[in-house]
């Protein structure tokens, strides 16, 4: 009971800080849209429509949603580093709440922000020519939450190990680009070199993109999508669940290290 209140309190503060920061809200909403428009339209003309089963913008769309969830979720966990630099972490650490509650509150806060971001992007689906079936939305939300928790787990682990915002930024940049490019968001992972298959088989983004792609594109693409998919969505979900459990646990341990 006490733990639930603590987790909620800490997560609520993350949300409050997010909505207070108008600039951040603006950037996180418009960045993926720009991405979709610029990248998608640019590449669409030079890439053959047939190899993706769908229009290239549609093909990219689930990956863009996943990318935006990942970057928002990573970026939200930076708050732990800020808290340390600005002294607020002392206020949290001296409170009678377990380090696990603190880490879980931070993870959920970041995951909820990222998920709502993903939800918002779903509203733009018709604009890129994708008709969503309402019944896939709950399942897509679960995948988004799992993907957001997985990336928040990584972010929090890094945040609890580094001391400065600069270090956090450097490490995040090192992680974000490979995770994004090896996610299958741009090109299907079914026809890539073996090393890339191996690396991406550990990448939570690959599973998130794969699951979202089948959920969001199925009605539009039909069976043309089949050769591009990796796993059944339930397997993707399972992997994401395992991945987030491991990383959130590591983050909890890193958090309670000094305790």
């Amino acid at each position: 009971m006490r733990a639930a209140t603590a987790i909620r309190t800490i997560a609520e503060r993350e949300l409050l800080r997010y909505v207070r920061d108008r600039g951040r809200v603006f950037v996180t909403v418009f960045q993926p849209l720009m991405f979709l428009v610029v990248f998608g339209s640019g590449l669409r003309s030079s890439l053959a429509r047939s190899s993706f089963g769908v229009d290239y913008i549609s093909f990219m769309y689930p990956g863009t949603v996943a990318m935006s969830i990942m970057s928002v979720s990573f970026f939200s966990t930076i708050s732990t580093v800020w808290d340390r630099e600005f002294g607020f972490l002392k206020e949290i650490m001296v409170a009678p709440v377990s380090r696990t509650s603190i880490a879980l509150g931070k993870t959920f806060g970041a995951a909820i922000i990222a998920m709502s971001q993903g939800l918002l992007l779903l509203c733009f689906a018709p604009l890129v020519g994708i008709s969503l079936r309402p019944q896939v939305i709950p399942a897509a939300l679960v995948i988004m939450l799992l993907l957001a928790s997985a990336t928040a787990g990584i972010g929090l682990l890094v945040a609890s190990l580094v001391r400065t915002v600069e270090n956090f930024g450097v490490i995040m940049n090192l992680l974000v680009f490979p995770m994004f490019f090896l996610s299958g968001a741009f090109f299907p992972l079914t026809a890539v070199p073996t090393w890339m298959k191996i690396v991406s088989s550990a990448n939570p983004m690959a599973y998130g993109v794969d699951a979202l792609r089948q959920m969001l594109l199925a009605p539009t693409a039909g069976s043309g999508l089949m050769p591009l998919l990796l796993h059944p969505a339930s397997l993707d979900a399972l992997y994401l669940l395992a991945f987030s459990s491991v990383f959130v646990s590591c983050a909890v341990l890193a958090f309670s290290r000094r305790d």
Binding site: L16, R17, R20, D21, F86, G87, F88, E91, V94
Partner: peptide, 13 residues
Amino acid sequence: GMVFQDPSLDDRL
């Protein structure tokens, strides 16, 4: 209860 010597408020709230 603790009042720290250094700042410890969340100044965005």
